[in-house]
Design a protein around this nucleic acid. Sequence first.
DNA 1: TATAATAGCTAATAAGATTAGCTAAATAAT
DNA 2: ATTATTTAGCTAATCTTATTAGCTATTATA
Lengths: 192, 192
Amino acid sequence: MKVGLNKQKIIESAANMADEKGFANITLKVLATELGIKSPSLYKHFSGGLDELNKELMLYGWHYLDGEITKAVIGKSKDDAVIAFCYTYRKFVLEHKGLFEAMQWYNMYLSEEHLQATVGTVSVLFQVLDAYGLTEEQKVHTVRMLRAFLQGFSTIESHGGYGNPVSLNDTFDFALKTILNGIADLQGGTAQ
Amino acid sequence: MKVGLNKQKIIESAANMADEKGFANITLKVLATELGIKSPSLYKHFSGGLDELNKELMLYGWHYLDGEITKAVIGKSKDDAVIAFCYTYRKFVLEHKGLFEAMQWYNMYLSEEHLQATVGTVSVLFQVLDAYGLTEEQKVHTVRMLRAFLQGFSTIESHGGYGNPVSLNDTFDFALKTILNGIADLQGGTAQ
DNA sequence: TATAATAGCTAATAAGATTAGCTAAATAAT
DNA sequence: ATTATTTAGCTAATCTTATTAGCTATTATA
């Protein structure tokens, strides 16, 4: 009784399940049940089993985020573009907590593959920063700082790791302002 | 043939194993073998099984980091103290990659426990920031921003996620400078 | 219409976590 | 010292999940 599945449908289903139940709670059995098949049948789509599925989930997540960010940034420049980038990133993580876990998780096992996956997102950030007239090295530093902050903030926030009642929106704005001021200072000629 | 184990020894062994083989590759079987016992015997020390062991590993890691940071910060103030804090954090993660995975990993499952664990480290940071005469809210924002940056940077760095040849030390210094400048601006009276 | 490929299935294997119940060593109580 | 109790180990057995092998019906192709 062929259900008519394919990689794409399975990955999307796994992504939804990750967001609902948490990435760590995805098993081939429960995923298969959800899809109306038995778990060994998943190997017809992912011969590499769970490991391959997780990898695909990671790639899917980064491409997804990539698309969201690209849409958000189009037509904006400079600070507006950076802010749109960061807000979209943060929003994505809050809305796709489980998928984001997959995006980071796999990172821990296959750097090379992960590097490829993040290339899209990172290169959008590079393009956004082109408008500021920074040196290549300054751009690299800024991209890395932004990535670090966004990943750290989103991870901590989405897991309830910030235990203070002060508004998280305010903190996010505060941090962006700090970073954007830093970029402005670089332009001001005080380039180190 | 009582080996004479206790929680502390087991946790330290697990921490070393995590750093050597990676957190995800710790199994009760291999840990037990390493310790010279059989895996069911571990339940005499951790009735909650792997889950409890992981939780203890997380707590151990945060206390460990806490101690290192406290030592590093003693006798320093203001920027020197912040810089010492950040360098110690980063160094710790590079030297204890596997343990740090545990510290973050558990985070994903037991927020309340994790909150308690990080209290020590976070409160040191708060004390360091006391010297700047910021408002409580500004301090909270700054602590959160630093935590986010440090966690994100260290995670990405330790997993080889930064694929550019530009010096990571330079990026780290660049980012600290940016954040410290931000703090300086707050003191300058331009408090928002 | 015959053939091949595909996507599903069931049954079986293997690895790991966990539980139950046993035993010897260490410790505490008489 | 001797007895009683706790403790820390063990083996055997169970459960869950991933994975492999081999079968079958449907779909697509020649």
